[in-house]
Amino acid sequence: MDIKGTSVRSLILRFLNNQKKRDNNYFIAQGILKSFSKIPQLTIYDLSEEYFVSTSAISRFIRLLGFASYTEFKDAVATEIDIVNDYAKHFAQPAQEQSEEFMSIFTDNILANINYVKEHIALEQVERIVATIAQAENVAVFGLEFATFMGQHFQSKMASMDKLIQVGFTIEEQIEIVETISENSVALVFSMEGGFFYFSEKVIAALKEKGVTIIAFTFKNAPIIERNAEEVMICGEINENTEGRIAILYIMELLIYYYMRDIYLIR
């Protein structure tokens, strides 16, 4: 399984959320999440003793997630345990007096991104994208972790208007989607920093080879995006403290509304 660009915690949480029985794998998954920040310092034997399961059972679960070995799994965990990387250095410290300052700046930045869309994005572009979605035989949402979570919301709302949207969580699932859709299809790529175009080159290459129309929603119209996307919507400018996550949802809500107004209600 190709899991590059997919959060380890998200893989485990997804496993737990979809697990129908509380077997050995279920309790191993729970144990790993409870010890997640300590994983880089723990050997497989430490984990085995702490949760009273065999090392072979842990190895099987690790492979089930898509990792070749516990070492590979531990290295992947080490790269994502530092949540402070989500925020500007100024705010990533235990200083109570900064609480109000963060709320103010964070809120102002979100509003600045929303106002950017209001002031810079032409309604004609939104309506054109909505029409493209309506006319496409297949539509799929692509992105890294948060974008795929929001993609499920977008999928649900569009399904209420009889439009099927596909969402792939891992790169492997995304490749499978590309393989099954037709040439007259649309890929909606939500990537505020453009990371998807770098981390998921296999998916982008498969979309290009299939002749799928790529519409990118981003903050930065980088050369790699310009080379690969037929249309680019700039959705804001600020993503210092994860403000881009709100921008993704905001843009999706605009697409949902205008699809409802322009397509669904006039059928």
Rank of each mutant, 00 (worst) to 15 (best):
Lys208Ile: 06
Gln166Phe: 13
Gln166Trp: 07
Ala78Asn: 14
Ala112Met: 06
Ile44Leu: 05
Glu237His: 04
Glu127Gly: 00
Ile32Gln: 05
Phe27Asp: 08
Glu119Leu: 10
Leu249Asn: 03
Leu207Glu: 06
Thr107Lys: 10
Ala187His: 08
Gly194Thr: 05
Val139Gly: 03
Tyr198Asp: 13
Val84Gln: 11
Thr148His: 00
Ser69Tyr: 01
Gly236Met: 04
Pro94His: 03
Glu230Gln: 11
Asn18Asp: 11
Ala78Leu: 10
Thr180Pro: 00
Glu101His: 06
Val77Arg: 12
Gln98Leu: 15
Lys34Ala: 15
Gly5Met: 05
Glu201Gly: 07
Thr6Val: 15
Val84Ile: 04
Asp86Thr: 04
Ile39Pro: 02
Tyr250Lys: 02
Val212Ile: 14
Ile12Pro: 10
Phe91Gly: 12
Gly211Phe: 01
Val186Arg: 09
Ser10Tyr: 01
Lys118Met: 09
Gln174Asn: 14
Arg128Asp: 08
Ala95Ser: 09
Val167Leu: 09
Gly195His: 10
Val178Asp: 01
Leu11Pro: 05
Ser10Glu: 07
Asn17Ala: 14
Thr79Lys: 15
Asp23Trp: 02
Tyr198Glu: 13
Ile28Asn: 09
Ala222Val: 00
Ile238Val: 08
Ala76Asn: 11
Ala92Ser: 15
Thr55Cys: 10
Ile266Trp: 03
Phe15Tyr: 15
Gln19Phe: 00
Glu119Ala: 12
Leu188Gln: 04
Gly236Leu: 04
Pro94Val: 07
Thr71His: 13
Tyr264Thr: 05
Thr242Tyr: 00
His153Thr: 13
Ile234Asn: 00
Gly195Trp: 02
Thr218Pro: 02
Lys118Ile: 09
Leu123Pro: 00
Leu47Arg: 02
Leu144Gln: 07
Asn239Val: 07
Val126Glu: 03
Phe217Cys: 10
Met252Pro: 01
Leu33Asn: 08
Val178Gln: 01
Tyr264His: 11
Ile129Lys: 03
Glu72Trp: 01
Leu249Arg: 03
Leu164Tyr: 02
Ile62His: 04
Ile214Lys: 10
Glu50Asp: 12
Phe91Asn: 12
Phe169Trp: 12
Ile129Phe: 00
Ile121Gln: 03
Val126Gln: 01
Arg9Met: 13
Asp75Ser: 14
Glu137Val: 09
Glu176Asn: 13
Lys220His: 15
Asn113Met: 07
Ile224Val: 11
Lys157Asn: 07
Ile175Ala: 02
Glu176Ser: 13
Tyr258Cys: 02
Ala222Glu: 07
Val203His: 09
Ser160Asp: 12
Phe146Asn: 06
Ile204Cys: 07
Ile246Ser: 06
Arg9Trp: 00
